[in-house]
Design a protein around this nucleic acid. Structure first.
Length: 415
DNA sequence: CGTCCACGTCTAC
DNA sequence: TAGACCTGGACGG
């Protein structure tokens, strides 16, 4: 779920399924969740949603009580309450029958109907969170999709911030400036402009203006280079725009795919997969950034690559049952012909330091001995395992070759 | 079965 | 700048 587009699609989903629906009673939290209780209860209320970057805000609005006195009932809300959600790595909303609650439904809103239905915040990994009476998190910048102008101004006016000395691929994940960009978007955005991921952000952004000079620019072919301001490196960008503009338009492309954002669990994940040009695409290179996150790219990595960065070994993509914001019931799955095993493309370790190091995004740092485990705790040190290489690996045809177009992931989707 | 990997923050040393 | 926080799917043995 979780990058700007998915959060926005989630808000659209909530507004759609909750339109005209009346909810009632208390908001229920799962036993296991560590997020705050939501002390809101009302005989009749409505739910609406809004998104900003990587957050979604639900607004619970009490409906007018017929009899004013009833409002006095203890514990019955009469004022709206906002709840701000962050989705972590696996959060999303679902609307189901009470008898078919999804696993990991950590916060639930029940409708007033007879066989009631339930709006659930589902989050398997529980990295997500919510804040009752919350507001957009302070410190997060303007939304890259829906506050484009202020987003640009915020970045351009802070280029002297030390934060921009980091590699552009890492700065793109800094939510103070790029609220809504996540791991797949940074890859797709930099790929489109052929910007090496590990060049300093300041270098990649210097010269850009607060105003989007490409905004009203139709793909004109002549290289006028007219306006004094953006004379720099137009031409190649005339039809796409600069880096900041792509931080806005690329996520919007995903929103336009409608309910097909990133989520391998969805029936129509293939549409999103087909949209990806770089992230997890066969033939692309990948390296761990300084935070242990996998950066997908093509061509030159750039000068600021972590000295020991290694290319992780991506497994295959998955495909499962649906769960989909477009509530289009699983329409004839993407079945078609063969399961297209796709021949594993040749691979070779990324040019940089092929040294083996037990580094990995999540658990890399989660190595510590389990305290909870009783008995002879297993000495789970990394068994360095001579080579980390996996045969079905992908990675690049090593720089030089990368000049060709993106390797279309062998992914036939039944049209 | 165990290992590796995942769309993201958070907060301690 | 490491860890912590979590579940579960894909793979390898």
């Amino acid at each position: 779920m979780p990058e700007g587009p998915e959060l926005h699609l989630a808000s659209q989903f909530v507004n759609k399924v909750c339109a005209g629906v009346v909810f009632s009673g208390p908001v229920i939290k799962s036993e296991v969740s560590k997020s705050p209780d939501v002390s809101f209860s009302c005989e009749a209320y409505r739910i609406t949603a809004a998104s900003r970057g990587k957050e979604v805000k639900l607004t619970l609005t009490p409906m007018k009580a017929d009899e004013p006195k009833r409002r006095a009932k203890a514990g019955q809300a009469d004022e709206p309450m906002d709840i701000v959600f962050r989705f972590g790595m696996s959060g999303f909303f679902r609307f189901t029958g009470e008898d078919e609650l999804p696993k990991h439904a950590h916060l639930r809103f029940y409708t007033k109907e007879k066989p009631c239905r339930v709006l659930s915040f589902v989050d398997a990994r529980r990295f997500g969170s919510w804040q009752p009476n919350g507001t957009w998190q302070a410190g997060r910048g303007p939304c890259i999709m829906f506050e484009y102008k202020s987003f640009r101004e915020n970045v351009v006016s802070h280029l002297s911030d030390r934060a921009f000395e980091r590699p552009i691929c890492e700065v793109l994940l800094n939510q103070k400036y790029f609220n809504g960009i996540g791991n797949y978007l940074r890859a797709e955005i930099l790929f489109r402009l052929n910007i090496p991921p590990f060049v300093s952000a300041r270098t990649a952004l210097e010269g850009l203006e607060s105003e989007d000079l490409y905004e009203n620019m139709k793909p004109l072919k002549n290289e006028t280079a007219d306006i004094t301001k953006g004379v720099r490196k137009k031409k190649a960008k005339e039809e796409t725009g600069d880096l900041l503009r792509l931080c806005h338009t690329v996520p919007l492309e995903v929103v336009s795919l409608g309910g097909k954002g990133y989520d391998p669990e969805k029936a129509d994940y293939s549409a999103f997969q087909a949209w990806l040009q770089c992230y997890y695409v066969d033939g692309m290179k990948s390296l761990r950034d300084h935070n242990g996150r996998t950066m997908w790219f093509k061509g030159d990595p750039g000068p600021l690559v972590p000295k020991d960065s290694k290319s992780p070994s991506p497994k295959k993509r998955i495909k499962k049952e649906d769960h989909d914001y477009t509530d289009k019931k699983k329409v004839a799955k993407v079945r078609s012909g063969s399961t297209t095993k796709k021949s594993t493309i040749k691979r070779e370790s990324v040019t940089k330091t092929p040294k083996k190091e037990k580094k990995d995004a999540d658990r890399r740092k989660t190595k510590p001995t389990r305290k909870k485990t009783p008995g002879a705790n297993a000495p789970q040190q990394e068994a360095k395992s001579g080579e980390r290489r996996r045969k079905t690996s992908r990675t690049q045809p090593t720089d030089g070759v990368a000049a060709s177009g993106p390797q279309r992931r062998s992914l036939r989707l039944s049209r």
